[in-house]
Nucleic acid binder design. Sequence first.
DNA 1: TACTAATGTTAGCTAGGGTTAAATTTAAAA
DNA 2: TTTTAAATTTAACCCTAGCTAACATTAGTA
Lengths: 153, 153
Amino acid sequence: MVLGYTMAKKADRLEAIREAHSLETETAHTDRMEDYLEVIYELIKKKGYATTIDISKYLNVSSPSVTKMVQKLDESGHLNYEKYRGIVLTEKGTSVAEGMHEKHNLLVEFLKMIGVKDDIANIDAEGIEHHLHPETLKKLEDFVKAAKKNISR
Amino acid sequence: MVLGYTMAKKADRLEAIREAHSLETETAHTDRMEDYLEVIYELIKKKGYATTIDISKYLNVSSPSVTKMVQKLDESGHLNYEKYRGIVLTEKGTSVAEGMHEKHNLLVEFLKMIGVKDDIANIDAEGIEHHLHPETLKKLEDFVKAAKKNISR
DNA sequence: TACTAATGTTAGCTAGGGTTAAATTTAAAA
DNA sequence: TTTTAAATTTAACCCTAGCTAACATTAGTA
């Protein structure tokens, strides 16, 4: 019985990998689109608008890359884009961006909590935030909340 | 002063995003290569060899994709590949794969610890494991160790 | 208002990783 | 041993996202 259990666990590792790579996320948007939306959202929040150059600066890409992605995000309904004029996030785009923002905050909070330095926490959060199951987010949230309570107790 | 601090934090968010996307990782291998190496490693560990079909199955890709990537991993020195004959991981490839394996284990352990269910923990670990700074891994490791001690206390 | 600088966009190309269809090699069965 | 089936590889293609160079538009200054 113990052996059987061990075997099952071993097989699970490969099964788990398979499941992880079979996810039909069907999100209708890519990780990269999320990155752009997040930056656009933060820029608008900070200065009221998001220019091609600023977006390119914060994503470390060229301006033509930005233009291209912005056109794509316009077509997918995440924002409204008028050539040479500007960008406005739609409700859809805002909702995606806010989701990223919250995930990012939660992750940074947690990482700092276990002692990761600010800048590294931010970098890692940026890398991780695309890949978290809602359940994981929920548990992480609970954990952070509980830990905070413990500290203040 | 308080305002100044707040402003700084707001600016930091965008700066953090910028840093995260400017990383010159210079790892000489991509995330996808890591995925393949991990699966190949697990397959070899489990059955002694890794076939094209098995790899394709666990990564949910077609067999031509596997062949192509295996050729690439051969050229990069992560494995030795002989057409129609088989694959042997080199030291370099093994070391990358073992690194992934360990990161994966650590992440799953942590996620389960905070209450994430087994299968989801595995899926998320798979998504996250490419994006963790060594410092973050270290802190996470410390955290898990400490938590374990607490439980058994 | 006219001219120049800055910003934004288009065109054309690259690399990574994926796919299907067709060809090859290996293995198994008659 | 010949024939057939399964596994593997090659060929030819697609898509995402990036880049540089060239072009267009807007804004700022003389």
